[in-house]
Design a binder for these strands. Structure first.
Length: 362
DNA sequence: GAGCCGTGGTG
DNA sequence: TCACCAAGGCT
């Protein structure tokens, strides 16, 4: 077979060069990046952005990244902050265990490493919230280490370039090995970002722009006409619906009752409007729901509307009931909060929807 | 290994 | 409307 027709070979040294040349022309300018070929960016900013970018889009991350960096310019500043402040600043970004681990990691870097991020994959991997992907990304981007970065983009690009037809997640190991064979020894940070940029902007999940791809010639899936079908994936289970009743309780001064969720699990450590448990199956009968009310002996009235929200593995439907308590002490683990102060609370998006629905319904 | 863990955009 | 998807990590 003529070399010009050869499909991707793991040993082909021209593949990284082709990609880097493309990246030199097409790299997106992002707040946590330095230009291609330039000095490496600050490890703190790289780490912060990579944690925020876990399963999260660039567009969603940018404003959060800017606010975090302005409020806590160094890892020491972040380590010294109260966890509550970090959770409040993170509210709306999702996957709140990331925020708790971010704070833990900042404290570990400050206390165990003197405020300086370790510069090897292995040492980074030992820090909270840093897994295989993030350790490789920080090592390559911030420290120029040769490290094979494998995220969803890289898996898709490798599956197509080498026409791997075995479905994910079973093919993860194979895709990682293929990615590793391509990883160059120089310009490690640029290369890592280049593969991910390629996946994000050219080798997209649907309607990939193969004509704009620096790897179009060697791409085995494109040649077979199956690029858009790869990577294959096993079907995911359908999401069940869970239902609950939220209690909008205000006092004489119009303040609303809020409480903190348990530290672990769904929305761990975040602030919420009290509610019944969220259960799958039958809707809550009124008298049944009131057994879970935060205060007894109140006259609850239904509010119009239904709050819908989708989590990773279930849909949620919340109805609202409202009551007023006269000069009541807040129940244990709960407190009264004035409505104008809600912006400063660690309210996840689903709870901001509850607030909006309650205010609109009263 | 597989389930859990948010949110917003997209087709 | 709805399933899929995004620079994953933890248990």
């Amino acid at each position: 077979m003529p070399s010009s027709m050869a499909s991707a070979s793991a040993a082909d040294p021209s593949l990284p060069a082709l990609l880097l040349a493309w990246y030199d022309r097409h790299a997106r300018r992002l707040p946590w990046r330095t230009p291609p070929g330039g000095p490496a960016p600050d490890p703190y900013g790289v780490w912060l952005s990579e944690v925020m970018l876990q399963q999260t889009t660039v567009a969603a991350v940018i404003p959060y990244y800017q606010r975090f960096l302005a409020r806590w310019p160094t890892v020491r500043d972040l380590a010294a902050a109260p966890l509550d402040d970090v959770l409040t600043e993170w509210a709306g970004l999702g996957y709140y265990a990331r925020a708790r681990n971010l704070h833990k990691c900042a404290m570990a870097v400050t206390e165990r490493h003197g405020g300086v991020f370790p510069d090897t994959e292995e040492a980074l991997r030992d820090l909270p919230g840093i897994g295989a992907y993030t350790a490789a990304a920080v090592a390559a981007i911030a420290f120029g280490r040769r490290a094979t970065v494998v995220d969803g983009n890289v898996e898709r690009v490798m599956a197509r370039l080498f026409a791997v037809e075995d479905p994910l997640p079973g093919s993860k190991g194979e895709l990682k090995r293929l990615a590793d064979t391509l990883t160059p020894d120089s310009r490690c940070g640029d290369y890592a970002q280049a593969v991910m940029d390629l996946g994000a902007t050219v080798c997209t999940p649907r309607s990939p722009s193969c004509l704009a791809c620096p790897w179009q010639a060697p791409c085995a899936a494109r040649r077979s006409g199956i690029a858009e079908e790869l990577p294959r994936k096993d079907r995911k289970a359908a999401k069940p619906v869970r239902r609950g009743v939220a209690f909008w309780l205000t006092d004489d001064d119009g303040r609303v009752l809020l409480r903190r969720r348990p530290e672990d699990g769904l929305l761990g450590g975040m602030i919420e409007v009290p509610s019944t448990p969220w259960r799958e199956g039958s809707p809550w009968a009124p008298e049944e729901a009131l057994e879970h009310a935060p205060l007894r002996g109140l006259r609850w009235t239904p509010l119009p509307g239904l709050v819908r929200h989708t989590f990773t593995h279930f849909h949620l439907e919340l109805t609202l009931v409202a009551a007023t308590a006269e000069a009541a002490q807040p129940p244990a683990a709960a407190r009264w909060v004035a409505l104008p102060a809600l912006g400063g609370e660690a309210l996840p998006t689903v709870m901001r929807k509850v607030v909006r629905a309650a205010v609109a319904g009263l």
